[in-house]
Computed example of a mutant assay.
Amino acid sequence: MRQEMEEEKLRAVYYARCSTEEENQKDALVRQAAEAEEAIRARGWRLVDAYVESRSGTSRKGRWEYNRLYEDLEQNRFDVVVIKSQDRLMRNTRDWYLFADRLNCAGKRLYFYLENTFYSPEDALLTGIKAILAEEYSRELSKKMNLAHQKRQQNNGKPVLTSKSYGYRRTADGAIEIIPEEAAVKRRMYELCADGLGGRKIAAVLAAEGVRSRAGKPFSGTDIIRMVRNPMNKGTVVMNKKHYDFNTGKTLPTPPGGQYVYAGKIPAIVSEELWIAANRAADERLCRKKVGKSVQT
């Protein structure tokens, strides 16, 4: 009886997570949060906070709510953490054990409402196995997603156009078209580069002419050289330039042999000849700089 009375006084928080921000997953996240709140009410606990996010569970990176919960474990703000299942909290074996250790050291409890059970240090082996299985599931899922993405790009899929793609825009029907005013600025960059000017000098010329970026700021030399180097401006799209590596948890460059190059995929802002001339001039400037530095040293 005494234990039941003490349980009723527990201060509870819950953590809810789904992997993506797709609409169906958002609905799942809302349901998950509602289920957790109902589980807290059913046990007579007092809800004091909630940690909810749409992030991958494979690591702690970018998971602001999980990291907030992890730090709050050491504060006297709650007594029990409520989650749907172990994989909602973490799909990474190492981080699971770190969380469990901090939970135990802080004297907090962890309640799985789907199984209606509390975590116990005696379950360390079982929960460790679950963490390994969850991690392996994520690894295989990541491989499948990478493969599907690679297949789409290999089959001449639709090119990605970000909001930073200066000179281009996507139309209502999904086609890519040139923005004439921005394209004229880009051609000016290529012409100046082909004439032997470096990024900073080109930036100074454009600034003096009153040219500004979409954000209303002058272009930097780095911005200009990055655009000059981009083959998209001659209509060539390079796909599968990067891929996610689950083992490192990082997005890595794909070797040239694994990339897919499609010439004439989108409208060209500059000709092939001008693109080659500008990039050759940029290469020569870079080579001279390297020679100069080696002579100085």
Rank of each mutant, 00 (worst) to 15 (best):
S142A: 13
Y119L: 06
Y190K: 01
A16Q: 05
D101C: 02
G157P: 06
C287K: 14
V205W: 01
A278Y: 10
E182P: 02
V270T: 07
R102P: 02
E284V: 13
E21W: 07
S54A: 12
R17G: 03
N116F: 02
E177F: 03
R94T: 09
A39T: 08
L47I: 02
A278S: 14
R288A: 14
A207P: 00
Y51P: 06
R43F: 08
E273K: 11
Y97C: 00
A281N: 05
K9P: 04
K108S: 07
L286E: 12
L206A: 05
A106F: 10
F99N: 03
A172C: 00
T127P: 00
Y168V: 08
R55F: 11
S163L: 13
K61M: 09
Q32Y: 02
F112W: 00
A268G: 03
A204S: 14
N247H: 10
A277C: 04
L125C: 07
T127F: 13
K130T: 02
L133G: 02
K108V: 03
E177D: 14
L110E: 01
C18L: 12
E181W: 01
F99I: 05
Q259P: 11
L192F: 00
I176H: 01
A207M: 04
E8S: 13
W45Q: 15
Q25F: 04
L252Q: 14
G167Q: 10
I40G: 03
L192C: 05
V185P: 00
D95I: 05
M239C: 15
I266L: 04
L161M: 15
D195I: 00
Q153S: 12
L69A: 09
Y260P: 06
V237L: 06
R91S: 06
A50N: 08
D72R: 06
M90C: 10
R214T: 07
D27C: 00
A282H: 12
R63N: 11
G264Y: 02
L192V: 01
G249E: 07
W275H: 14
P256M: 10
Y244E: 05
I179E: 07
V261K: 13
E8N: 13
R280L: 12
N240T: 09
R41T: 07
V81L: 09
E191F: 01
Y244M: 09
A204R: 13
L103C: 10
S59E: 09
V185F: 10
I276L: 14
L147G: 03
L161N: 05
A42V: 01
L197D: 01
T251I: 13
I202A: 04
R188S: 12
N76F: 03
G221M: 09
N230E: 05
M189A: 09
N92W: 08
R91C: 09
A194N: 11
S19C: 11
R200A: 11
S165A: 15
K61T: 11
N230L: 04
L110Q: 03
C18G: 05
S213T: 15
S220V: 00
L197A: 07
P256A: 08
